[in-house]
Each structure stands twice: as C-alpha cells, then as structure tokens.
Design a protein around this nucleic acid. Sequence first.
DNA 1: AGGTAACCGAGACGGTACGTCGCGTCTTACA
DNA 2: TGTAAGACGCGACGTACCGTCTCGGTTACCT
Lengths: 200, 200, 200, 200
Amino acid sequence: MTPTRPAPARGRPRSTTSHQAVLQAVAHLIDVEQLGFEQLTIEGIAAQAGVGKQTIYRWWPDKAAIVMEAIQAGKLALDIGEVPDTGDLTADLRMWMRQARQRVFTEKNMALARSLIVALVASGVTVEEYVPGGSIQEGSQLAQRLESEERAGRLREGIDVEAAAFALLDPVVMKMIAGQVPEPNWFDALVDVIVDGVRR
Amino acid sequence: MTPTRPAPARGRPRSTTSHQAVLQAVAHLIDVEQLGFEQLTIEGIAAQAGVGKQTIYRWWPDKAAIVMEAIQAGKLALDIGEVPDTGDLTADLRMWMRQARQRVFTEKNMALARSLIVALVASGVTVEEYVPGGSIQEGSQLAQRLESEERAGRLREGIDVEAAAFALLDPVVMKMIAGQVPEPNWFDALVDVIVDGVRR
Amino acid sequence: MTPTRPAPARGRPRSTTSHQAVLQAVAHLIDVEQLGFEQLTIEGIAAQAGVGKQTIYRWWPDKAAIVMEAIQAGKLALDIGEVPDTGDLTADLRMWMRQARQRVFTEKNMALARSLIVALVASGVTVEEYVPGGSIQEGSQLAQRLESEERAGRLREGIDVEAAAFALLDPVVMKMIAGQVPEPNWFDALVDVIVDGVRR
Amino acid sequence: MTPTRPAPARGRPRSTTSHQAVLQAVAHLIDVEQLGFEQLTIEGIAAQAGVGKQTIYRWWPDKAAIVMEAIQAGKLALDIGEVPDTGDLTADLRMWMRQARQRVFTEKNMALARSLIVALVASGVTVEEYVPGGSIQEGSQLAQRLESEERAGRLREGIDVEAAAFALLDPVVMKMIAGQVPEPNWFDALVDVIVDGVRR
DNA sequence: AGGTAACCGAGACGGTACGTCGCGTCTTACA
DNA sequence: TGTAAGACGCGACGTACCGTCTCGGTTACCT
C-alpha cells in the first residue's frame, strides 16, 4: 500500500523568509499605513516586503487570500476578547459589547476592521469564523457563553443558540462594514432584545 | 426678489435620455451580464449606455452612487416585499423571511445581491435602509411592522425597535454577503429568538 | 463622386506635444544617455517624455517604429554628408569614406549608429534608404555620384550603378553593425576595388 | 612535476549529453519551431533540452554564444557551399551567387538566416567568417577563391582581397537582414562590378 | 433671430496597477 | 562537484481603467 507519499519536493524550496515578509508587509500596510482593502495593492505589498511580484502570485491567488492568511497567522488581530461568565447573561453580554466598542470601533481600528471583513467576504469565508477569534465548530465566544447559560438551565427550551449568536454579532459586524460607530446604548438595546425578546 | 429661487438654469439642460440610459446600462450589466460590483467599470457603463464618460462623471460621484440610484429607481430590484400585519408577529415575520429566502437567495440573484450590498457599503449608506425595499424616507419595512406592534401594545416597554430590526435583518444580510443559503428553519429560529428572547 | 473624404475626426485629437516629446525622448536616450536599441525600453521612453505608456502604444506598433520616425523627423541624424564631385571618382569616394569614418565610426556615435541600423533592420526597411540621407528612389548620395560619372561617359557600358553603390555602402554598414572600426586604408582599398575591379 | 598537465579535474566532469542536448534544442527551436533570435529564450532552450538553466549559464555566456556554437557544430547550417575554381572568376562567382540565392534566400530559410546573422552580430563576430560555411580557422570561401586567383596572377597588383570579398558578400548579407530576395541578375551585376570595376 | 452657455458623444491624455514573461542567481536533492 | 528542478528579486512587457481634458456638434434659454 503506497500511502500517497508527498512528492519529494524537487527544486529550490519555498522561502519562509519571503512568505513571512509578505504577511508582515500586509499587516504593516493595513495596520500602520492605514490602507483599506481596496487601497492595498499587490505591487505595494511586494515593495513593502522586498519581494518580487511573481513570488506573491506563485503562492496566493489574490489579495484576499494574503490578508486571510495574515489574519490566521495572527499578524492582524481583531480580537474582541473573552465573554465573561458571571451568571448574569445580560451583564456579561453588555460587558463584552462594551469591549467590542472600545477595541474595534476605534478611529484607528476601523480601517483594519473593514479591510479584514472585506477580505473575508471576498474570499467567501463566513465572517463569524474569524471575528470572535474562533470558528463556529470550535464554538465562537458568544455561542459558548450561550451554551453555558443553556447548560445552567437558564435558557428557554428549544432555543437555537447559533441563531442567537448571529443575531447579536452580525449587527455589530454590519456596523463595522458600514463604518459607523454606534452609541453605547445601541449595544445595550441589542443585548436586551436578544436576551428578553420583543414580545410583552 | 425671492432669494431661495433656484438659479435660472442657463445653457442646455441635463439629458434625461442619457441619465436613464446609464441606469439602464448598470441594470443590464449587473442583472444580465452578471457582473459583480468590482467587475463593473465606468467605461463599461458608458459604452453600454452609449454615453460619454464625462456625462457620467458630471452627474454621479462614483460607481456606488450610480448603482444606488439604479436601485432606488427600481431598475435593480432586491425587494423582499411587504411585511404582513395579521396581528401575529411571529407568523408575520416568518412569512416575510420565507419570502426573503425565495426571492433573494436564488442562485441567479445571489451575485446581484452581493453587488448591491458592496455598492451600498462602499457608498457608506446603512444597508438596512435599502435592502428591505424601502427608501430612507419610508423607513425600514421591518421597523414599521415592529412599530405597528408596539402601538398595539404588544411589545415590552422600552424596547429599541430599531435594534430589533437590525437583529433580524443583519444576519440575513451577512448570509447574503457570505454567499450562503441558510436552511428554512434557520430563519424561523432567528425570528423566534427576536420575538421571545433567549432567557427562560 | 465622393472623393473618400477623411473621417471627421471625432474625439480629442492627437496631441502633437506628446508626439514630439516621444521622438525627442528617444533622441535623448540614444544620443545623450548612449543607450543601445535593446537597452531602450518603452517605459523608459514614456518616463523621459513625461507621457503615458498607452499614448505610445496608441500611435506606434513597436520600438523600431518610434526610432524610425525619430530618424525621419531628423531628431536622430546619421548623415555622412555629400559625395564630392570633382571629376576624380576615386578621390571623391575616398573623401566621402574618410568623412564616414570620422563622423560615424566615432566612439560616441557607434551606439547611435548600431541602434539606428538595428531599428531599421527590425522594422524591415532597407537600410540604404536612410543611411545616406535619402532613399534609393530619390537617389542615394553614392548612386547619384556614380550616375553623374556615368553621364560623363566615364563608366563602363552596362554597369549596374545601384549594385555598385551597394558594394560600396554595405561593407561599411556591416562594419557598423558589427561594431568594428576599420583602418583608414580599408576604406581606400574598398573604393579601389569598386572603381577598378579586381581583374588584371 | 609537469606544470602544463591539466588540473586533475576534481568533481563530476561536464556532461557531454547535456551539452549536445542544448545545441540540439537550439537547432530545433530555430529550425523547426521557426523562432527568431529574439524569440529564442534561455528558459525555452533549457526546457526543450531537458536541462537546468544553470547548466547553460555555466558553459555559455549568452544566447548568441549558444547559437554560434550550434552553427559551428553543424547543427544549424547556413552553408552556401564551395566557391568553384574553374579559372573563370566571373563564372565561378556567378555560380556561387546562384547557389546562395537558391539555398539561403528560400522562404523557409530566411528566418533562420536572419536569426543567425543577428546572433553573429550580437556576439560581435564578423559575419563573413561564418556565413560562407567556413570557420575562423579556414577563412572565408570567397577570400580563398580570390587568393587562388591572385596566386594565378590574374588579379591586379596590390588588390586588397579581403576588401573585395566584403564588397561581394556584405550586400548579400544585407539583403538577407532586410528580408529581401533580389532578382538573379542583381547578383550577376554585383559580381560584374567587383570583377571588372566601374571605371571605363 | 441670434448669441451663448452648458450639455453631449467621442476619445486622447498622464497615470497606476495589473498579471505575465524572461533574466541571471540561488538553493535544494540526487548522482 | 555537476545537474535537473525550480524559487528568488528584478525589470519590462502590453492591457485595463481611472478621472481629466479637449474636440465638434447640439440644445434651449435670454436677450
């Protein structure tokens, strides 16, 4: 049985130096130079990385893929942070929202946030896999918190935890995409709706 | 002398023919030629419309503005339709969601939907003002339905109707952006969360 | 009878400024910067001329065509000068050859000469139409001198004047192409062969 | 210790297989694939030969050198053939010219001829050393024939045989470079001028 | 009934970035 | 050490669109 051994790798191997330089360059351009996703150019990345354009085209299909990998490699972080678990769901979610507002909806971070999201969208990956720092399968921070609440018997029966997580997160993401910074009480109102519903 | 009277408009007036031709061209390119927002070019629009580039630049600041106006003019429809008002909020919203799934999450319409959303995002306009089919003046269909419910005294006191509308709509929009078609019960679960909340 | 009037020339007309700038740039790069034909790049020409690349591609099919036009426009001269006509054919041709050696086979002019010739060759134009300053139809300097001699009855009957002119000029051109500077007596020996033949 | 003994040749010796493969590849590309000298690329040659680029750069300084060696190795023939020596100089040269016209000025061979000449020119070698089919050591066929005539005492005293050979050959080469096929009597007229001169 | 100012189409202009090709160098594994 | 393979930094290619600019020609208002 030949276990489909990988080809013996002929020719000069891929340069890890260049690879890292490209990811670092993307991080620099987005984070420091404050370029949006559409201002980002392959030529600019190549120049910043001190790398030939061909080297980029050899390994990534497009801009989005590079930004994606930079995110996954941790070069570009958009981590809102842990969702606290004090037992008071409303308070915990409000606290997390407050963190989100402070960390992500900064003048400085908005361009980054929009770039990341556009990259994610353009690459066809679901946003929530990345934004909370984990994937849905692993359990996003929000979904995990809700599941914890569910295990404590404090949620209604038959609630779709994933849907609830989306209902909380996606309005926040949409605001980021639109480049708008909501008022603090907008976040609270959102939490309030999800936790208690709208019906009397 | 009436100081607010508009200037007497000397010279040749704006050609409505050209104006309409541009909007029609955009609709054709997106809808028939199936071009995404980024594939759409000013030169392509001008050529399709049989119009000079200058004419476009004279009347619209950028691509997004043209697409926006084409939507508002009804040349490009992404109309989910009216939210029914039978008095049963859950049933009404589920019905509307079912319509959304059928009309927008079509193989054929997904590209259109993504184009429109990118255009809206790029133009800095909040998405929810357009997607439900209403204009800024009319306000969101969803928000209207919720307000009607509120006037009937069937909502909890102090509910932020706008936040609730976002919590319903944005997950749907995000799915469109991501190019994913959710299962029917995903929509129902979402409605359920918003209407009744997650807390026991 | 419609005398095929030229089309009414729609759109912005060709910029003579840019046109001239390109020709001047080529002259500068070859003549001053001492670039050979293969070192010459379209991008370099565009940059030197302060012109977009597209403007060059719009009007010239390739490098050779630009250099050609620069020669024809007199921006790049490779004029050996008049062939004297004192009645002494050998002396006159030797004098002209001496001029050729001094004017063209200069350290400074060799690159220019090779560039021009490569351009001419690459563009498929016969060299002798340009090098002597005129075309064969108009009569090259050499052919004219020989014809003058013929009219004076000093040539053998049935001599092909054109062939004789080639036999004189082409070895000189080949030396230029090869980048070699012949000794002065090489030129004299060449003239001697043509004027008196090799047979005893 | 024998100081002139060649170094003991440490390491793996030069691969004659690769060497030949390169020359063969050049011949194939020029002759069969009908590539001109400028279309010919090192990478293309390496691929065709199944050889690493480095191997080529190790043994040849540039493209021209490879083509040169291919010619010398007889892989690429541009052999006009021997100049006959019947004692009748005019007849012999006319015969040789007729051969040249038939062998080289063929539709099929023109591209080859131009490639070779450009290669020779680019490599800075005088053309006449190669075109007649001889190598540097053997000297030019034409010059040899003229020297034979001289030894027979049938040339004028003090004639520069080399100059005469140039005067005959270079117009032919220039026609090849220009891609023109002269009429048969053009060749005869050329021979006539060289043999008997133009002066009455 | 002009004059004239703003419109219109066409398309050339200086640019920027694209994605590709080939250069000559380098770095592997293998022979 | 030579060799095939092939990645590397680099530079130029020819193309696509950008947003601006000039043409000749066309309205439609205002003397």
